[in-house]
Computed example of a mutant assay.
Amino acid sequence: MLRKSGRLFYVIGASGAGKDSLLNYARQQLKNIPTIAFAHRYITRPASTDGENHVALSNEEFMVRVRNGMIVMHWQSHGNHYGVGSEINSWLANGIDVVVNGSREYLPTAAKLFPEIRPVLINVSEVVLLRRLLGRNREDKEEIAARINRSKQVSVTQEWPNIHIINNDSKLENAGEEFIELITMARESECV
């Protein structure tokens, strides 16, 4: 039996925490379950083969979509616009659980839009975060230091006591299976 409305899993984490890898892992494992959907983000940066699978838009295209109500959640970070399409509203209304790649800073706004939101924090130790950021070869040392500082400053666990924290310090499969269990157990417990 389907629930009347789906649940919104809002996934957040510092850059380098492995959020994209974890989302890709879960998407592949759950791809044949029609009651779970992973929303693609709309981002004003070009698509790349080694990054997030997103819909690339120009700034103008992005703003047209915002003005026309086609993007339900949107924020800016690192010089780009990020958004989640309004299609998730119909998915949720039809009992489909939706997984969104979110922003820590946008979480309070997202929670106002979706009061039943399920925040999920992908967490890593500072040592692992530093190693991953260095390994990406995308940022210089100052940018890496700024990202690590930023990860320390944003404490969502105090503001959101119901947040589910997944540690991603070890193998991707460990965190991935915990994430999959979180999504599927929530569905099973409410569909009984």
Rank of each mutant, 00 (worst) to 15 (best):
P161R: 10
P119D: 10
N80H: 15
A56M: 10
T184Y: 08
D97R: 06
E126N: 04
V128G: 00
S5Y: 05
V64C: 03
R3C: 07
M185R: 12
Q28A: 13
T44G: 15
L92M: 07
R147W: 05
L8G: 08
S58R: 12
F9I: 03
A56F: 08
N137T: 07
V99R: 07
T44N: 15
V99G: 10
G51A: 11
D97Y: 08
E61N: 10
L22G: 14
S5N: 10
V156T: 02
N24E: 06
N137H: 15
S125Q: 04
C191M: 15
V100N: 02
H78K: 11
V55N: 13
I163T: 05
R3M: 09
L113W: 01
Y82K: 08
K112A: 12
Y106W: 07
G13T: 02
F114I: 06
P34A: 10
G85N: 05
L8Y: 07
D169Y: 07
G16Y: 07
L134F: 02
E143A: 15
A37N: 09
R104I: 06
L129M: 06
V124D: 05
G18N: 09
V124T: 15
I148R: 04
S151E: 01
V192T: 14
N68G: 13
M73P: 07
E116L: 11
I180D: 06
N101T: 06
R138A: 02
G18D: 02
A145S: 13
R45S: 12
H164W: 10
A175Y: 03
S125Y: 03
H74A: 04
G6A: 08
N168K: 13
V100F: 01
Y25N: 12
A14I: 05
F38H: 07
N59L: 08
V84F: 05
I163H: 05
L130E: 04
L8H: 05
L23T: 05
K19G: 06
S21L: 09
V154W: 01
E173N: 08
T49V: 12
R138E: 02
A26R: 02
S86M: 03
A186S: 14
G16H: 10
K112D: 09
A186D: 15
E181I: 00
Y82D: 03
H40Q: 14
P115I: 09
M63T: 06
